Simulated scan of single mutants.
Amino acid sequence: MSIPAGVDELTPEWFTKVLSAPIDKVEVIDAHSGTTGRARVALRSPADVPETVFVKLQPFVEEQRKFLRQIGLGVAEARLYATVGNELPVRAPRVWHADHDSADGSFVMVLEDLEASGCHFPSPSDDGILSVAESLVAELAVLHATYAGQDLGWLRTPSGMRRKPEDTEIAARRAQFIVSAVEQFADEMPAAFRRLGDLYAERSLEVVALFNEGERTLIHGDTHSGNLFVDRGRCGFFDWAVAGRGPGMRDVAYFLCNSLPIDMRRAEEAALLARYRGALADEGTTLDEHTAHEQYRLFSVYSWIAAASTAAMGSRWQPIDVSRAAMVSTTQAIEDLDAVGLLEERLG
């Protein structure tokens, strides 16, 4: 079955094939391109199909397509949705169709239109963001407990993001994002920003190796508020492009350090970590308090790396005001948690 190269190929005939139902008319309500191409599409059909769907496909600009082919994000997400999208134990968009071609990097996903389903999309400034956090840690515990210790042979990390601690070339490319962030922002940030930036630039291979220590499970990998939705009070997750294997605390720390207001994180992080541990226990998985806290400190570093790298790219990956706010929050988190001290202790 063909994989559409653009929205003009999202035809009634194509939808008829992938949905196995007659589609009489297709209307593209909205379409835009960033990291991927995205379109909200209305369908007219006598069959029992959704009135609207959300389609992710290749970016509309060739330069961005080339970038996405190099790192493999679209292919990785389409593969995950096709394999387990409708089996995930957490709320995620319903998958109507997902396909990819690893050879040329093409992909397409036809997903539930979350807006039409009545979901809303949280932001750090929302009055109810603490309730989102409480739901998020409970949902993540279910996800992490479900896949703990499993082989996950179907999972493929995006080709451009695979962690190979021995690969100095990959390490150098990743470190360059942080070098750029230090050059651009260190003078206006707390001292921990430059300390961590310099340490990571010098010893990125060793830092990345620490992120893989401990029991691993399926992790979403990118749990900032922009990849979340709320459905009748339940936190859900979309944009699974960087899903991988790792300690579950990485997902928890990513959100708490990136997307909770600083004062709220300081006041609530202990309770939220306890809630996560309790939800894990309910699922038969044990995580002791000391290990959880030390993992949280460590993965605050991962959250900072992601935010600082994104901010270093200006508005190419996210609007700069969003990425700068995340960078400020994660920098304060690493300072509060003495994450640099932890790294220095662990690395020797």
Rank of each mutant, 00 (worst) to 15 (best):
V18L: 03
D127G: 01
H97Y: 15
A39S: 13
P124N: 02
A78N: 10
S117I: 00
E87F: 00
V41I: 14
M109S: 10
P50L: 10
K17T: 14
I71Y: 10
A116V: 03
L57P: 09
V84E: 14
H100Y: 15
S45I: 09
N86Y: 04
E112M: 08
S125I: 00
L114S: 02
Q58Y: 00
V61C: 01
A78E: 07
S33G: 07
F107G: 06
G34V: 02
Q64P: 00
V28P: 09
A47K: 10
R65A: 00
P122I: 06
I71A: 01
I71D: 13
N86E: 05
L114W: 05
R79E: 12
E87M: 02
D24C: 03
A116R: 11
F121W: 04
V28Q: 10
S106L: 12
M109C: 12
L73D: 07
V26S: 12
D30Q: 15
R44V: 14
R94K: 15
C119M: 05
G118D: 05
S45P: 10
L130H: 01
R40I: 12
R69H: 04
S131R: 14
L43S: 10
E13T: 15
W14T: 10
A47C: 05
L73G: 05
E115C: 00
S117F: 00
F121S: 02
Q58V: 14
S117W: 00
E112R: 09
P22D: 13
T36E: 05
E62N: 03
V41F: 08
V61G: 02
D99V: 04
W96I: 01
K66T: 14
K56D: 03
I129T: 05
L19M: 11
W96C: 01
V61A: 12
V110P: 06
V41H: 09
K66Q: 13
A116P: 03
A98P: 04
Q64L: 11
Q70M: 12
E62C: 00
A92Q: 11
L43F: 10
F67R: 15
E87T: 12
A133E: 07
V28L: 09
